[in-house]
């Protein structure tokens, strides 16, 4: 069953974005784009989320926060970097307080370019991430099955 693809719940975190991408992420929820059509809910709580949407590049303050949030999201999970700041640090890449895109910190599955990323782009990105989510679910199931059979999970995660 692929319920996961029909009900991806988002967690949005603004790493150090200028708000442009943030409000476009929020705009996706509103009547004109209404991503709830795809079962997407902006949960706001990492423990309920499946898709971690990050806007903005990583700054020094955010490192630990992003990692902490990422760890609190239950498997399977995907990370979508929205906007060029999140993908590469963007225009602020060279600032002293930035360390670049979030893939320096946590594995990113989908990069959504744009400054600011348009809602359509974001929807595309999330839809793309669902495929990966589904793959990860299958992998997780497989790992669990292996553990049950007593085989070592082979270098699994944490």
């Amino acid at each position: 069953m692929t319920f996961l693809k029909k009900s991806p719940w988002l967690l949005h975190y603004d790493a150090s974005s200028c708000n442009g991408c943030d409000i476009e992420v929020l705009a996706c929820l509103t009547p004109l784009y209404d991503v709830e059509r795809f079962g997407i809910i902006n949960t706001g709580n990492p423990k309920h989320a499946d898709v971690f949407v990050v806007t903005g590049g990583v700054n020094e303050q955010n490192r630990e926060v992003i990692r902490n949030i990422y760890e609190q999201i239950p498997e399977p999970k995907v990370v979508v970097a929205v906007g060029i700041c999140a993908t590469s640090g963007g225009i602020f890449r060279e600032c002293y307080n930035m360390s670049g895109g979030i893939d320096q910190l946590i594995p990113v599955d989908v990069y959504v370019p744009g400054c600011a990323a348009r809602p359509e782009s974001i929807i595309d990105g999330i839809v793309k991430s669902l495929e990966i989510l589904e793959e990860k679910r299958i992998q997780m199931k497989e790992r669990a099955r292996q553990i049950k059979q007593g085989r070592s999970p082979g270098g699994g995660e944490r």
Partner: peptide, 20 residues
């Protein structure tokens, strides 16, 4: 808004059961 499909709650619960 258009809103989610009527069966959405079942998808949600189905998904949650599959999660870690």
């Amino acid at each position: 808004r258009v809103g989610p499909p009527i069966l959405q709650p079942f998808y949600d619960v189905g998904k949650l059961l599959e999660k870690e």
